[in-house]
């Protein structure tokens, strides 16, 4: 008989415990359930719907089990009607079949809502998965300009994304805006996102892609339409090729001389490497190295000298620079806004 007491008291403890855990979790940002765009919103609705379908089953199982335990602890020998078969039929067939039908129909509706808006998108952005950063391209038909790890979009409208990868599989995911879509070599695909309000939304690679999969973040930055146009115009401007006597001229030269230009592009100069991110407007970015470090002077120069320390295995080798070269390069890069 001791069991019964343990069982009930334990059940309460477990219930309270899980509510505490839920509460704690609820304080942090539960991004998937805090939608900031229509697609994520539909998906979150689907979640609440299916949770509503699922909970009665869980409760039924737990309550029936507890009742069954109590029932046969009564220890009387009077013959009783058998209910087992009826439980199988209702609990194992009829009700779940109805629930699945409901879920399926709700799901199809959601599926249409979260895929169809791509056709209404006016703006289309290229997103390429790199090892281990994101290459973002804006094309105006003639020329494509690139930036890295930041996707600027106009708020309030669907924006199409052309996803591709020429290395390994990555997965594009901004939980507050939409679900995931994989970037599979040889299988480019078209996806879309929409943010209802201007703001910054965190995204991350979600398919294991090797050494620094964990440090492959990006940001989606939504602006009002006009602000976005201003940003895009600004982004299109190449950097100014500095000449002898200009402020950061020595930094620019050191950038060429120490080999940075073999991997990085700075439009408007001779630096045209394509291994690493385009640095034309580096100074305007919030983070560097795909969310690994914030873009401030100390981090920037530390990264340049020994990026392996922050993101071991990434494709930028340590650059043993003279202290004044480093100073000059950092200053030069910080002027590229």
């Amino acid at each position: 008989m001791g069991h019964r007491i343990i069982t009930w008291r334990y059940c309460w403890a477990l219930l309270v415990g899980s509510l505490v855990v839920l509460g704690l979790g609820g304080c942090g940002g539960v991004l998937s359930l805090q939608p900031k765009g229509p697609a994520a919103e539909r998906i979150a609705e689907l979640w609440w719907f299916q949770l509503l379908l699922a909970l009665p089953f869980l409760l039924a199982v737990i309550i029936l089990l507890l009742l069954a335990i109590r029932r046969n602890q009564r220890n009387d020998d009077t013959p009783r009607r058998s209910h087992g078969m009826r439980m199988i039929i209702w609990g194992g067939a009829v009700l779940p079949a109805l629930a699945m039908l409901a879920l399926m129909s709700f799901m199809i509706g959601t599926l249409v809502d979260v895929t169809e808006p791509v056709n209404r998108a006016e703006l289309s952005i290229d997103v390429e998965g790199e090892l281990w950063w994101w290459k973002i391209g804006y094309s105006n038909g003639e020329e494509t300009i690139f930036t890295a790890n930041e996707i600027h979009i106009p708020a309030g409208e669907p924006v199409a994304l052309e996803l591709s990868s020429d290395n390994v599989i990555h997965s594009f995911w901004v939980p507050e805006l939409h679900g995931k879509r994989d970037l599979i070599p040889g299988n480019p695909s078209r996806f879309w996102i929409q943010a209802d309000q201007p703001g910054t939304y965190h995204g991350q690679c979600a398919e294991f892609c090797g050494a620094q999969h964990a440090k492959m973040h990006f940001l989606v930055i939504a602006h009002e339409r006009e602000d976005f146009m201003v940003w895009l115009e600004q982004e299109r401007q190449p950097a100014r090729l500095l000449i002898e006597g200009d402020g950061n001229f020595s930094g620019q030269q050191a950038f060429f001389d120490t080999g940075c230009s073999s991997c990085h592009t700075i439009r408007g100069t001779n630096a045209a490497g394509v291994v690493g991110p385009d640095l034309t407007h580096l100074a305007s970015r919030i983070d560097i190295a795909a969310g690994t470090l914030s873009n401030v002077t100390g981090n920037l120069s530390a990264w340049i000298v020994d990026s392996q320390q922050f993101k071991p295995g990434n494709l930028m080798p340590p650059m043993p620079l003279q202290p004044d070269d480093l100073l000059d390069i950092t200053g030069y890069l910080q002027s590229l806004s």
């Binding site: 089953f57 046969n72 209910h83 609990g91 194992g92 779940p96």
Partner: peptide
């Protein structure tokens, strides 16, 4: 596939339920 899985779960619960003494 939830159906055959569910059927088993309820067969187990039903067996406990219909038992005279567990």
């Amino acid at each position: 596939i939830a159906l055959p899985s569910g059927a088993q779960v309820f067969a187990w619960i039903g067996t406990i339920w219909d038992s005279k003494r567990v």
